[in-house]
């Protein structure tokens, strides 16, 4: 039997194909060397960054994140972390577009509350509309509410990214049922963003049928970030393959032996 033909399985976002379904953040690392080493181990091609005021009077030789992660090698995805209304989020991403020479792929996140960092969905919808009208390709952090996710898709967002659990909590996927409803209805890629704690969480997200996973803290705050990045790469790949393979049906009350029942010696 000849080996089955290998069809490349890629993540398609806004018309561009990515071999990796793992997207990673660049925050909370010890230094840029560790950031880069972890990102290389993760295999991620899309990396998120935040936009912040430059430290005026800083050392002229102070290293810059984008020197470690050149936009020629990675798809830099600027975020709106820390924005609590649509106006600030849109303003931030317009600055990001200028900073990145006109690149328009962005991550929109409008937060509602400092304690939970839960998305502010009314403001997220307002910002998404304005950004899409201005030509941005918007990947959007959102609640795991199928109705809101659909509304964002209808506005023209290129990917919806519901939270698995609170940002930075590492609590894993708290509501797989809602994610399944979102996945069932969505026509754009669905990525789990926020809440992943360890490799099995990422695998579960992919087994559910998510198109990708975005994480930061799970890698950056592992005891060994580079090793965890490698684990996440494998988990996302394994989860994706398991989803494509199609899992066996669950049999809740009936065991089924794996060995033959014929030919036993007694």
């Amino acid at each position: 039997m000849s080996a089955p033909e290998k069809v490349p399985d890629t993540l398609l976002i806004a018309g561009k194909r990515y071999a990796s379904r793992l997207l990673v953040g660049t925050g909370k690392y010890r230094d840029f060397a560790e950031t880069r080493a972890a990102i290389d181990a993760s295999g991620a091609q899309i990396v998120t960054v935040a936009i912040r005021r430059v430290n005026i009077g800083q050392n002229a030789n102070e290293p810059n994140l984008l020197d470690s992660l050149p936009p020629s090698q990675f798809t830099i995805l600027p975020n709106t972390a820390g924005c609590y209304n649509a106006k600030d989020a849109v303003r931030t991403l317009r600055l990001a577009r200028e900073l990145l020479d006109g690149r328009v792929l962005v991550k929109l996140e409008v937060l509602a509350d400092e304690a939970t960092l839960f998305p502010n969905m009314p403001e997220t919808l307002v910002a998404a509309k304005e950004l899409v009208a201005d030509g941005f390709e918007v990947m959007v952090y959102c609640s795991d509410d199928p109705i809101q996710a659909k509304a964002l898709e209808e506005i023209g967002c290129v990917a919806v990214m519901p939270l698995a659990s609170l940002i930075g909590s590492g609590m894993g996927i708290l509501n797989p049922w809602n994610l399944e409803i979102i996945l069932d209805r969505a026509k754009v890629p669905v990525l789990v963003d926020a809440g992943i704690g360890t490799a099995s969480d990422a695998a579960i997200a992919m087994e559910l049928g998510c198109d990708g996973v975005l994480m930061n803290t799970a890698i950056a705050k592992a005891k060994n970030p580079v090793l965890m990045a490698s684990a996440m790469k494998k988990a996302v790949e394994a989860g994706r393959e398991a989803f494509l393979a199609g899992r066996m049906p669950k049999k809740i009350y009936q065991a089924s032996p794996s060995s033959p029942t014929e030919g036993k010696i007694s």
């Binding site: 953040g25 936009i51 994140l65 975005l214 994480m215």
Partner: peptide
Amino acid sequence: LEVVIAVGGG
């Protein structure tokens, strides 16, 4: 005047 750069973030 605002002067911004990219920094580490999720």
